[in-house]
């Protein structure tokens, strides 16, 4: 029996500016623990919007959202921020590291925010994550001084620092060359296989998508496949 980690029921969302527009139409979705899921579709089909709803950052929708057994629709922003901190990791297309901080500090920040471990332990864990991603030797560098591929791996390490149940990626390989892209993909794959983490990635890259466990294709705000 597969364990359901994320579940939506009848999620609807509208944009009102500039014109009323029905972006997400009655989305029902179930994601299982340890699954590597890719979300594909043409530009404007609503896949990014769906991802932001799933990520709890976008609260302006109707319907039910349940992650890890927690009902999240209608919860307060502060509660959701704490929830994201603990249970969801993010990897974005443009890596979005804080440029004034070192790679290590960037990885440590969400864990320091969580406050579950002491600073020493957080540092040790951050080193482990960086080591796992093969960029331990760059830990002390300012993140703005790293190459694109290195930055993306630091961002993945940051997403992993709190051992989230769910990792979300918005075009996680969109900005990388094929070698780095393959690299990131194999890291994701091993996370789901070996650590039982769930990954939902929005992507345009068909090759990337075809190698994932399940592909969800969207069109005009509906899941068509």
């Amino acid at each position: 029996m597969k364990d359901i980690i994320l579940k939506t029921q009848q999620v609807n969302k509208y944009f009102y500016e500039p014109q009323p527009f029905h972006v997400l139409k009655s989305i029902d979705l179930e994601v299982y623990r340890g699954e590597f899921l890719s979300l594909v579709g043409k530009s404007g089909c609503g896949k990014s919007t769906l991802m932001y709803v799933l990520s709890t950052m976008d609260t302006d929708f109707q319907g039910q959202l349940e992650i890890n057994g927690d009902q999240l629709a209608g919860k307060k922003q502060n509660y959701l921020a704490k929830f994201r901190n603990e249970h969801i990791g993010f990897v974005f297309q443009f890596h979005f590291l804080l440029p004034e901080f070192t790679a290590l500090q960037n990885v440590m920040l969400p864990a320091l925010k969580l406050g579950k471990y002491s600073k020493k332990e957080v540092e040790k864990r951050a080193y482990e994550k960086l080591d796992m991603l093969g960029i331990k030797e760059h830990a002390g560098k300012l993140s703005s001084k790293l190459s694109g591929g290195q930055q993306q791996r630091v961002a993945i390490a940051r997403a992993l620092i709190n051992d989230p149940v769910l990792i979300m990626g918005d075009e996680p390989t969109g900005n990388l060359d094929s070698q780095n892209s393959d690299n990131v993909f194999s890291i994701f794959k091993s996370l789901t296989r070996d650590f039982g983490q769930t990954i939902i990635a929005v992507t345009h890259d068909e090759e990337f998508a075809s190698n994932t466990d399940r592909i969800i294709e969207m069109s005009d705000g509906e899941i068509i496949n």
Partner: peptide, 16 residues
């Protein structure tokens, strides 16, 4: 702005 967005995404509340 980008930094603020990423801080919020990774779990920093408005107050933080």
């Amino acid at each position: 702005m980008k930094d603020i967005a990423i801080l919020k995404a990774t779990g920093f509340a408005a107050k933080d």
